[in-house]
Computed example of a mutant assay.
Amino acid sequence: MQAVLYICHGSRVKEGRDQAVAFVEKCKSDIPYPIQETCFLELAEPTIQQGIELCIQKGATDIAIIPVLLLAATHAKKDIPKEVDIAQTKFPEVVFQIGRPLGVHEKLISVISDRVRNTGIMVKAESTALLVGRGSSDPDIKRDMEQIAEMIKLKLPFNKVSVCYLAAANPTFEEGLEHAKTTNSQVFVIPYLLFTGILMREMEEEIRKLNQIHQEFVLTDYLGYHADLREVLRERIIEAIGIKA
Rank of each mutant, 00 (worst) to 15 (best):
Ala3Pro: 02
Val4Leu: 12
Leu5Ser: 05
Leu5Phe: 06
His9Gln: 07
Ser11Pro: 00
Arg12Cys: 05
Gly16Arg: 05
Gln19Ile: 06
Lys26Leu: 14
Asp30Thr: 10
Asp30Leu: 15
Tyr33Thr: 12
Pro34Ile: 04
Gln36Pro: 11
Gln36Asn: 10
Thr38Arg: 08
Leu43His: 04
Ala44His: 03
Pro46Gln: 04
Thr47Arg: 00
Ile48Ser: 05
Gln50Lys: 10
Gln50Leu: 04
Ile52Asn: 06
Glu53Trp: 01
Ile56Trp: 08
Thr61Val: 03
Leu70Gln: 03
Thr74Phe: 13
His75Val: 01
Ala76Glu: 11
Lys77Gly: 09
Pro81Ala: 04
Lys82Glu: 14
Lys82Thr: 12
Glu83Lys: 09
Val84Met: 08
Ala87Gln: 00
Ala87Glu: 04
Ala87Gly: 02
Gln88Lys: 13
Gln88Asp: 02
Thr89Lys: 15
Phe91Arg: 08
Glu93Asp: 12
Glu93Trp: 04
Val94Met: 04
Arg100Phe: 11
Val104Ile: 15
His105Pro: 00
Ile109Gly: 11
Ser110Val: 10
Ser110Asn: 14
Val111His: 09
Asn118Lys: 01
Ile121Asn: 02
Ala125Asn: 12
Ser127Ala: 13
Thr128Ile: 14
Thr128Pro: 02
Ala129His: 08
Ala129Gln: 08
Asp138Gly: 03
Pro139Trp: 01
Asp140Lys: 13
Lys142Ile: 13
Lys142Tyr: 03
Ile148Cys: 08
Ile152Cys: 08
Pro157Cys: 09
Asn159Gly: 08
Lys160Arg: 14
Lys160Gly: 02
Leu166Gln: 10
Leu166Tyr: 10
Ala167His: 05
Ala167Pro: 03
Ala168Val: 03
Ala168Gly: 03
Asn170Phe: 09
Thr172Ala: 04
Leu177Lys: 09
Leu177Gly: 01
Lys181Met: 10
Lys181Glu: 10
Thr182Met: 06
Thr183Asp: 07
Tyr192Lys: 07
Leu193Glu: 05
Leu193Gly: 07
Leu193Asn: 07
Leu199Thr: 03
Glu202Met: 13
Met203Ser: 08
Met203Ala: 05
Glu204Phe: 01
Glu204Asn: 01
Glu205Asn: 11
Glu206Phe: 08
Glu206Tyr: 07
Glu216Val: 07
Val218Ser: 07
Gly224Arg: 00
Gly224Pro: 00
His226Tyr: 07
His226Ile: 09
Ala227Arg: 05
Asp228Trp: 02
Arg230Met: 15
Glu231His: 14
Ile238Met: 14
Ile241Arg: 15
Ile243Thr: 12
Ile243Tyr: 11
Lys244Ser: 14
Ala245Glu: 11
